[in-house]
Amino acid sequence: MANKKMLNIGIDLGTTNILVYVSGQGVIFNEPSVVAFDVDSGEVIAGGQAAYNMVGKTHGKIRVARPLREGVISDMEAAKALLKYIFLSLKNRKDLRNSYCVICCPSEVTHIERDAMRDLALQMGIGEVLIEEEIKAGAIGSGIDIYSPEGSMVIDIGGGTTDVGVLSLGDVVLSQSIRVAGNYIDQIIVGYIHKSHNLVIGQKTAEKAKIETATLLDHVEFNSEFRISGRDLVTGLPRAIVITSEEVRELLQPVFEEIGRLVMSVLEQTPPELAADIVDNGIVVNGGGSLIPGVKDYFEELLNISVNIADKPLTAVVEGTKVLLQNKGSYLNNKHSRE
């Protein structure tokens, strides 16, 4: 009897969204990294988008949790519950024992947390499990041949962290990370609206405002407005204001200055031969933050190096898992397959 074809599963365990790729099916899950529990029983009642829709709107019998915050697992039980929720939703659950799974997580996640995720996957019946860094998978998913002897640099502006990495010969040569990314920008917008407009808003509202108005381009090139509703600090009643792209651009400037310093720090530590490759090949930016208008121009002006935005910046990591699944993350496997 012929052996069953191995089922390959790639998971991008991001701070903001979790994406799941299954061989033969494509990306089957692309939803917020949020899970909702029944407080009394502790059972999961919703995950992904359904749980995200509950944020800020629950009563005392429902707890909504974000497993990852600022690139680290802040709630291990919630992380395990969300992964279990996804594994149970797979169509071919009976084939899990003949499967290989790559879980990509932020570089800040500890070895203990990685081991816990690996153990959970094995407990769910997964045959083999590999834990990889998002920066590596994201580089592959952005179209970079990280297995070549040429150096490449990737800037991943995600939800919880911004990761900057230099890769060569199939692995990360050096990388650094800061907790300044999409969620941090949301918090800055919340604070600004509070202080400047005496209005209390939630992070979901701030995120919508960011998506609609965020830009690094000057006022002449890009201008938009967004209506924000919240609770008036003085009267306690609901009230709405309008925020402009010019206001948000001023909030973004110091954020990207900090990211720029991180990139400069990594470049300063990059070995000369790899640095020369980066000058020739340019830098790739992925993650949700790369979608902000003006990001490419900002980094090119700062670094005097060509910069490209990944074709699919939001799904680059999970796209990269396809290659990692084919060669089980090994440089040698990839090397032999190309000879």
Rank of each mutant, 00 (worst) to 15 (best):
S107H: 03
I283W: 00
I309Y: 10
K136Y: 10
V166K: 00
E225G: 01
K94W: 12
P106W: 07
G10L: 03
I243V: 15
F299S: 04
K4N: 11
S177G: 06
A116Q: 15
I211E: 12
E300V: 04
G202I: 00
M153R: 01
G165F: 05
V180D: 03
I157W: 06
V55T: 12
L217R: 14
L199Y: 01
T244C: 02
G26V: 05
C105M: 14
V55F: 03
G182A: 10
G71Q: 02
V285A: 06
A310Q: 08
N3F: 13
Y184F: 13
G138T: 06
D156A: 11
M76D: 02
D38M: 07
N286V: 14
N281M: 14
I126Y: 04
R239G: 05
K91Y: 13
L324R: 08
I241K: 04
I201L: 03
V248E: 02
R179E: 15
P106C: 12
A276R: 11
A139N: 00
V263R: 13
E339R: 13
S107V: 12
L82N: 10
T244H: 02
S306V: 03
N8P: 01
H197N: 13
N286T: 15
V154M: 15
G10C: 09
D75V: 15
V173C: 04
I243Y: 02
T161E: 07
A50S: 12
P272F: 07
V22S: 01
L251Q: 07
F299R: 03
S41F: 14
C101K: 09
R93A: 14
I157K: 02
V318D: 06
R114T: 08
I135S: 14
L216H: 09
E250W: 07
K335H: 11
G260M: 02
P149Q: 03
V35Y: 08
V22R: 00
I112C: 06
D277R: 01
G141I: 04
M76K: 12
E319D: 13
S99T: 00
E43R: 12
L167C: 07
I243E: 00
S74C: 14
M76H: 05
P106N: 04
E128T: 13
L96G: 07
A209R: 03
S33L: 09
F87S: 05
L332G: 02
P106E: 12
G42L: 10
L122M: 15
N8W: 03
I185K: 04
V173G: 04
A310N: 08
D156V: 11
S168I: 05
S290L: 05
G127Q: 04
G170I: 08
A181V: 08
G165I: 07
A316S: 15
I144R: 05
Y192H: 11
G165N: 03
G289C: 13
V323I: 12
S41W: 10
A206S: 15
I259Q: 04
H197I: 00
K94R: 14
K195E: 14
P272I: 05
P254S: 10
L274D: 02
V180N: 10
L130C: 08
K91F: 02
P293H: 10
E301G: 09
F299M: 03
S142G: 15
D311C: 08
V255D: 01
A36Q: 05
P149K: 06
S168W: 01
V220R: 11
S177D: 09
P293I: 11
I259R: 05
G282H: 03
